[in-house]
Simulated scan of single mutants.
Amino acid sequence: MITYEDRRAGQLAAAGRWPELLELFRRLRGTSPRSAGPVGHLIAYAAPPEHAARLFDRDGGPFTAADEHDHDAGPLWEVLATRHSWRRLAPLLEPAPVRRLVAHTRALLGEEVAGRAEPDPEGVPLTLAAWEQAGWEESVRVRDYLPAGGARRALFALPDTREDLGPLDLPAPGPRTPGPAATRSPAGLAPWLTTVCVRGTAPDAAAQLAPGRRVLAGHLPFAAAYPALVQAASGARGLGTAHGRLAVWHLLAGMAGAARPVPAEVDALVARLRCLAWSEPRDELWYLHLALEDPATGLAWALSGSMEP
Rank of each mutant, 00 (worst) to 15 (best):
R260F: 14
M255H: 02
E132M: 07
T82G: 12
A181Q: 06
A236Y: 12
I43K: 02
A107I: 10
V39N: 02
A233F: 07
R213I: 12
T82E: 05
A154N: 08
G10F: 09
P19I: 03
F25K: 03
Y4I: 14
W18C: 05
P180S: 04
H250L: 10
P171K: 02
V98M: 06
V142K: 04
A9G: 15
P309A: 11
R141N: 13
W278Y: 11
L168T: 10
G16A: 05
R87K: 10
L285W: 09
R274F: 08
L76A: 01
D169I: 01
A223E: 15
Y145R: 09
P261C: 09
E163P: 01
T241R: 04
L165C: 07
A15Y: 04
Q11M: 13
L93K: 03
L158P: 12
A182F: 01
E118H: 06
T241F: 01
E293H: 12
M1T: 11
A228N: 03
A300W: 12
V196K: 07
L170T: 00
R152G: 13
Y4C: 06
Q208R: 14
P171E: 02
D6Q: 02
P186R: 05
A210Q: 13
G254Q: 07
G298I: 09
C197R: 11
D169K: 05
R213V: 11
R87C: 07
P221V: 11
G60L: 09
L220D: 03
G305I: 08
D57A: 12
T31W: 05
L193N: 03
A223N: 10
R116F: 00
P281D: 08
A302F: 04
M1N: 12
V39F: 10
A36C: 06
T177C: 13
R88Q: 15
L303P: 03
D59C: 05
T241N: 00
R237L: 15
R8L: 14
A207R: 09
L209W: 09
P221A: 03
A66K: 13
R8N: 13
L92R: 00
A46E: 08
A15L: 14
L216Q: 15
D59N: 14
A46I: 00
L252H: 09
A53E: 05
H51E: 13
R29E: 12
R17M: 04
D144Y: 02
L165R: 13
Y45R: 02
S139C: 10
R245Y: 04
A206F: 15
V198K: 14
A271P: 06
A52S: 06
S306M: 09
A277W: 03
T195G: 14
V113F: 01
E284N: 02
G179F: 00
G110T: 08
A13F: 03
R83C: 10
R282S: 12
A236L: 15
R184S: 04
D169W: 01
W301R: 05
A130R: 15
